[in-house]
Design a protein around this nucleic acid. Sequence first.
DNA 1: GAAAACAATAGACCATGGTCCATGGTTTGG
DNA 2: CCAAACCATGGACCATGGTCTATTGTTTTC
Lengths: 120, 120
Amino acid sequence: MKIGELSERSGLSRDTIRLYEKNDLISSSASQSETNNYRDYSDDVLLQLKFVSSGREAGISISDLRELMKAFFGSCDPSEAENVIVAKTAELKERVSQIENVIVFLDAALVKVREGLDET
Amino acid sequence: MKIGELSERSGLSRDTIRLYEKNDLISSSASQSETNNYRDYSDDVLLQLKFVSSGREAGISISDLRELMKAFFGSCDPSEAENVIVAKTAELKERVSQIENVIVFLDAALVKVREGLDET
DNA sequence: GAAAACAATAGACCATGGTCCATGGTTTGG
DNA sequence: CCAAACCATGGACCATGGTCTATTGTTTTC
């Protein structure tokens, strides 16, 4: 499919898709036509973009995602892929626990605020 | 205390502290001395910075943190503070679940990678 | 076949979150 | 008293992640 359809189906702008491609998160091939230089994207790319955008929403950087994509889909050796995935999983879990710490703090603050409300 | 000590004790650079102060995450008072324009930071600020930096590490933006700091320490009315805290808590929980989705994906990928390793 | 819609490329632009540097003033230690 | 260490201010600079624009070329569609 061409970038327009991919954009439509992925919910990402053309610009963002091109940015991701430039950063090696996805790849494409030249279209069959000899008269243009349009890029052709496979259906797989759609799945990859879904992963990428959920990763971005979760706060994972593009360069981290590039490593992960390489581990998943690239042809690098599986034991290195394993290392990357294990490492990133650990990072993400650390991140979750950081956020949960903040949530705990917020919960405590909420209790205090509500006590203040009661007294008023 | 002066900014140097605060920097030392908080683990944040002077520049970062000044950035946070400019963004109203913390505040300071003029020093007693009439001959300089140094700022003076209370011990409370140290706690606030601890919260801010853990929030930053958890990926919370400065402007979001500003709202939270206002809710905690500011003099805005408690019911609005409650709203802010509840809203931010919900956002953070959403973020956690996004990250956990990615982790699930990574776990599945890991299994596949390991199967691949076994076969080799 | 002409206009509208689409594509590629490059570069400008923007916000965010920091760091670094230059300047000039202040304080502190020896 | 003098140098070293500290402070404030402002602006430059950087990376990241993305959007917007202009230009030029290609397809679609009527």
